[in-house]
């Protein structure tokens, strides 16, 4: 199967998952295309479309929580950023994804504990 076709399949399958979670694909289409292309490559290389921006540890339980869309397993953290770690998905109300920043999980947890 060619990469383009697989990217389209990812779009369709992942849309189904992210929609009920309150997310959409980022309006930054260039970024979305790049990330989906990386995921097609990762699936070919490693068997699953893992998050292109997080490293695998080689432990199945850990790594499987990084298969895209990984929102369900990192929800509080991503909700706080209004985006997933790699920015492929953003909250539905986000119009300008460039306004969002990556907040490390540690910083997120520290700020949560302060509240």
């Amino acid at each position: 199967m060619d990469a383009k076709k697989r990217m389209d399949q990812f779009r369709t399958m992942f849309q189904r998952i992210i929609d009920p979670l309150g997310y959409k694909f980022s309006p930054d289409t260039e970024l979305v295309d790049f990330l989906l292309e990386q995921e097609v490559m990762l699936e070919k290389e490693k068997g699953s479309p893992f998050c292109p921006c997080q490293g695998l540890k080689g432990e199945r339980e850990y790594d499987m929580k990084l298969v895209c869309p990984c929102i369900p397993f990192h929800r509080d953290h991503y909700d706080a950023m209004k985006r997933c770690w790699c920015g492929l998905y953003v909250h539905k109300d986000v119009e300008d994804p460039d306004e969002l920043v990556q907040i490390s999980k540690k910083d997120f947890e520290a700020s949560r504990n302060k509240c």
């Binding site: 790049f34 990330l35 292109p52 921006c53 997080q54 790699c86 920015g87 990556q102």
Partner: peptide, 8 residues
């Protein structure tokens, strides 16, 4: 970094 990561 990761080769697949645009933010990197």
């Amino acid at each position: 970094a990761l080769t697949t990561c645009p933010w990197c």
